[in-house]
């Protein structure tokens, strides 16, 4: 069998799963809208920020897109634990397909889910008064896929070290929420205390949000090329590491 077909098969299953759990799609679009409309309007009205041409709501829009990708990607990656509990992972791992192909297929499936959500949000960007051009739409979708690949790899990596969904809350508190809050999704990352600045720059999602902000709003803190290098680098690293760990640990995953 060609590995391509294996990757495609894993991707297809992941995508079907995503599309069939409709409630997941609904929540994954409603949650960001709540952030945008309620949090964005509320905080935007209470506090005046300098240097935000389109207001606070527009400022956080790319951040909320980043947040959606983050939650979807990491949690879908972690959902491998459920596959393991239901025994389905065994069926996949005992097939004659390489472990890297499994990881890549999964990550592509997860980034497809992120892409669907991202596209819906981009189409709804008019709500906060953003004028979306075709080029900006296309570049955003590419960024979304790349950011999601890295985060999916991270989720898969976490899953390969976790036995049960009991660790779910730990993952939420210690990985996902800090990544969201430290990404500059909700506030500008300039002029922060240096300890916070340090944490923000350590966070790979920061670069993703910054790149999206540049693409969608035309403003950014870091140069685009740097953001893109970090996003690509993180995606490659995470896919590579989780493929490696899946190969090494396959016995304990089955």
């Amino acid at each position: 069998m060609s590995e391509w077909e294996g990757i495609f098969t894993i991707w297809l299953r992941e995508t079907k799963r995503y599309i069939r759990y409709r409630s997941r799609i609904v929540t994954s679009v409603v949650t960001p809208l709540l952030w945008l409309i309620i949090f964005g309007t509320g905080l935007g009205a209470a506090v005046r920020f300098g240097g935000m041409a389109g207001g606070y709501q527009q400022f956080i829009f790319p951040g909320i897109v980043g947040q959606t990708i983050l939650f979807t990607s990491v949690f879908s990656g972690v959902s491998v634990i459920i596959d393991r509990q239901y025994g389905f992972l065994k069926e996949i791992l005992v097939a004659p397909i390489s472990r890297p192909s499994i990881v890549i297929g999964k990550a592509l499936g997860i980034s497809t889910a992120s892409l669907i959500q991202g596209v819906i949000l981009l189409l709804l960007s008019f709500i906060v008064g953003i004028q979306m051009t075709l080029i900006c739409f296309v570049v955003s979708t590419i960024l979304i896929v790349m950011i999601s690949m890295g985060l999916a790899g991270l989720g898969l990596l976490i899953a390969s070290f976790t036995d049960s969904m009991e660790g779910f809350n730990l993952i939420l508190s210690f990985i996902v929420l800090p990544m969201f809050l430290l990404s500059g999704a909700l506030f500008p990352i300039t002029g922060l205390p240096s300890w916070l600045q340090f944490a923000v720059y350590l966070n790979p999602l920061t670069y993703g949000v910054d790149a999206l902000r540049f693409t969608i709003l035309g403003t950014s803190t870091l140069p685009l090329y740097l953001n893109i290098i970090v996003i690509f680098g993180f995606a490659l690293l995470m896919i590579f590491v989780s493929a490696f760990v899946f190969s090494k640990k396959e016995q304990s995953l089955m």
């Binding site: 077909e5 098969t9 299953r13 079907k16 069939r20 759990y21 239901y86 389905f88 065994k90 004659p96």
Partner: peptide, 21 residues
């Protein structure tokens, strides 16, 4: 058991046939 609840029976067979070439 090693099945995925949200796939159909036919899809399980298709997936397996593809994975095994």
């Amino acid at each position: 058991r090693a099945l995925d609840d949200i796939l159909t029976g036919r899809e399980h067979l298709e997936m397996h046939a593809a994975l095994y070439g």
